[in-house]
Write a protein that binds this DNA or RNA. Structure first.
Lengths: 123, 123
DNA sequence: AATAATACATTGTGGTTCGAGGTATAGCAA
DNA sequence: TTGCTATACCTCGAACCACAATGTATTATT
């Protein structure tokens, strides 16, 4: 088996830790969705800047359901079996926590990138 | 050996992948610094929102030096031996790449959080 | 009949953060 | 002296997570 170590990872930038979970929670807050749909929605809404694969999406969904952040129900549409997910109260709480963490982090990073100190006015 | 599995990770939010590298590169672009100083500077400038440990900082510095993004020189100050790092041309390139990735990602995430589509006007 | 799109899923790998240690010097206070 | 704190370097193992590759099966299209 040969691996190409020079192959560029032209998929997602290296800052993706936690981002799939955050985005999925946000989408499910707006409406009930199923896994395959979620993955595509993220690709579309971010202009392919964020393009998570199904190998990322499904484990995240399963994990969040096990944590009680999501609940699911089977539904047959056009003879296709889909698993629709929606937020629980705990999931909503998780979303607001993550969104706040994300917000704080981006402010903090922007400050360093701008060369200022946290708390200063944004130029 | 006992591990406390209930201990909360109240340090950094879960979005830290790649952030240490980005911040370190940016600080070193402004001025020559040494490892211990960098770790503290990040803590201060981000108001402890980002608080990377030395166990993160040093490996990142070593890795970037091996990649040719940083160069180092020893310096004795007050009888203390410090290793000062500064950016190479490759490091500057790496910084601008990462900064652009970060920028794109934050825009994309903000779009999903706001419920819009990439490319729409920001409300 | 063959291919693409839909829809679910698992597995192995690699990279990265993180905490917990370890070493050593300098400065200060009890 | 003794101890403590701050400085300054470092390593290691565990845990986590995104990612690609791969697999299965059904429906729609060509």
């Amino acid at each position: 088996m040969y691996y190409c170590h020079l192959m560029r990872r032209d998929t997602n930038p290296n800052f993706m830790n936690g981002v799939p979970e955050l985005l999925i929670l946000r989408l499910l807050q707006q409406q009930e969705m199923y896994g395959y749909e979620i993955v595509q929605a993220i690709r579309e809404r971010t202009g392919s800047v964020v393009a998570i694969g199904e190998g990322v999406g499904y484990p995240v969904l399963h994990g969040m359901e096990q944590d009680g952040a999501l609940k699911s129900r089977r539904k047959s549409v056009n003879g296709r079996s889909r698993i629709y997910y929606s937020l629980t109260k705990r999931g909503a709480r998780r979303l607001s926590d993550l969104a706040e963490d994300w917000s704080k982090l981006t402010v903090a990073v922007r400050m360093v990138l701008a060369g200022g100190q946290y708390g200063e006015a944004i130029p």
